[in-house]
Computed example of a mutant assay.
Amino acid sequence: MPAREELPSTLQRSSKKARDTWIKAHDSAVETYGEGERAHRTAFAALKHSFEKVGDHWEPKAKKGPSDAQAAKSTPKRGRTAEGVDANASKQHLYDVARRLGVEGRSTMTKEQLVDAIMKANRKSTAKAR
């Protein structure tokens, strides 16, 4: 399986189900589109329907569905994403994730600010884990 050799580090630290979801979607996308960036984007779009990025790994979402406007597209294209943060979740859920990640100032943030702060905390956590 080509996807097992290309598994992103955040998925290496995630559950077997998250890894299997990404691998299955990636392999299918490779058959359809060929190896490359499009296969990776498609695999991440599929992953984001069931999982959200929290820190340096992926966790199951409470409710399945696209995590942001980009993930909702049937054919993912380049563009701004929420980088695995479930931007469609409630503000309370985002606040709870921000609390777990130690985001300061979260109590005064809007939903959009929480998404941005979580994205920043996730990038920092992932870089530290590498």
Score class of each variant (00 low, 15 high):
1 M>K: 12
2 P>G: 13
3 A>L: 09
3 A>P: 05
5 E>R: 15
6 E>T: 12
6 E>V: 13
7 L>R: 06
8 P>Q: 02
9 S>V: 12
10 T>Q: 14
10 T>S: 15
10 T>L: 05
11 L>V: 08
11 L>Q: 09
11 L>G: 04
12 Q>F: 10
14 S>L: 04
15 S>M: 06
16 K>L: 15
18 A>H: 05
19 R>A: 11
19 R>N: 05
20 D>M: 08
20 D>I: 08
20 D>T: 09
20 D>G: 03
21 T>I: 08
23 I>Y: 05
23 I>G: 01
25 A>R: 00
26 H>M: 06
26 H>K: 07
27 D>I: 06
29 A>V: 06
29 A>P: 09
30 V>T: 04
30 V>A: 06
32 T>V: 13
32 T>F: 08
32 T>S: 11
33 Y>R: 04
35 E>K: 14
36 G>R: 02
37 E>M: 08
38 R>I: 11
39 A>G: 03
39 A>Q: 04
40 H>N: 10
40 H>R: 13
42 T>G: 00
42 T>R: 08
43 A>I: 07
44 F>M: 10
45 A>V: 00
50 S>L: 14
51 F>K: 01
53 K>D: 00
54 V>W: 10
55 G>V: 07
56 D>Q: 11
57 H>W: 00
57 H>G: 02
58 W>M: 12
58 W>C: 08
59 E>Q: 11
59 E>F: 05
59 E>D: 10
60 P>K: 08
65 G>Q: 04
65 G>R: 01
66 P>G: 03
66 P>A: 13
67 S>P: 05
67 S>I: 05
69 A>N: 07
70 Q>C: 06
70 Q>T: 06
73 K>Y: 02
73 K>C: 01
75 T>I: 12
76 P>C: 00
76 P>F: 00
77 K>S: 13
77 K>A: 14
77 K>D: 09
77 K>I: 13
78 R>L: 09
81 T>M: 00
82 A>I: 03
82 A>M: 00
83 E>D: 09
83 E>Q: 13
83 E>L: 09
84 G>M: 05
87 A>S: 11
87 A>I: 03
88 N>T: 15
90 S>V: 10
90 S>N: 02
91 K>N: 09
92 Q>Y: 08
92 Q>D: 15
92 Q>K: 14
94 L>D: 04
97 V>I: 15
98 A>M: 02
99 R>H: 10
99 R>L: 13
101 L>C: 02
102 G>E: 07
103 V>D: 00
103 V>L: 01
103 V>N: 01
103 V>R: 07
105 G>K: 01
107 S>T: 12
108 T>K: 10
111 K>P: 02
111 K>W: 04
112 E>T: 12
113 Q>S: 05
114 L>W: 10
115 V>T: 04
117 A>Y: 02
118 I>Y: 06
118 I>Q: 05
121 A>V: 04
122 N>A: 05
122 N>R: 03
122 N>D: 06
123 R>Y: 04
125 S>N: 12
126 T>N: 13
126 T>C: 14
126 T>Y: 11
127 A>D: 13
127 A>L: 12
127 A>Y: 11
129 A>C: 11
